[in-house]
C-alpha cells in the first residue's frame, strides 16, 4: 500500500472526529496536520476515538487487525501520534509486521 493511501485513510477518520471537536484538526495541512501533543488539537479522549476509528478502517480496507498502542504516545519527539503522517507511517509499520507473523 502507498503512504498516500494511508494518509488519506487517517485524514478521512480525522474528518469524522473533527465533527465532535471545538478545536479542529487542520486537515488542509495533509500529512503534516498535528494530532496529539504540543501542537495537536486532540486530547487523550479524542486520540482514543481516532485510533479506534483508524484501526477499524484498516481492518475494513486491508483485512488486517492491528492494535495502535505505543508507549511512546506521550513523547513529543518520538510519538507515532504527533501528526497524520507519523500515524500513517506507524500504521504501515504495524501492517507490515502483521504480514511477517
Amino acid at each position: 500500500m502507498q503512504r498516500s493511501e494511508l494518509v488519506d485513510l487517517v485524514l478521512k477518520q480525522a474528518a469524522d472526529i473533527n465533527e465532535t471537536l471545538t478545536a479542529q484538526i487542520p486537515l488542509d495541512r495533509g500529512a503534516d496536520a498535528p494530532l496529539y501533543g504540543r501542537d495537536g488539537s486532540l486530547d487523550s479522549l479524542g486520540l482514543v476515538s481516532l485510533l479506534a476509528a483508524v484501526e477499524q478502517a484498516v481492518e475494513e480496507e486491508y483485512g488486517v487487525t492491528i492494535t495502535l498502542a505505543d508507549e511512546r504516545a506521550v513523547s513529543q519527539k518520538h510519538s507515532p501520534f504527533r501528526t497524520v503522517g507519523s500515524l500513517a507511517d506507524y500504521v504501515a509499520l504495524l501492517v507490515s509486521e502483521s504480514a511477517v507473523r
Binding site: V48, S49, L51, A52, A53, Q56, A69
Partner: peptide, 10 residues
C-alpha cells in the same frame, strides 16, 4: 476490556 472499550466508545 481495551478492545471492548474501542467499540463501546463510538
Amino acid at each position: 476490556s481495551r478492545e471492548a472499550a474501542k467499540i463501546m466508545q463510538r
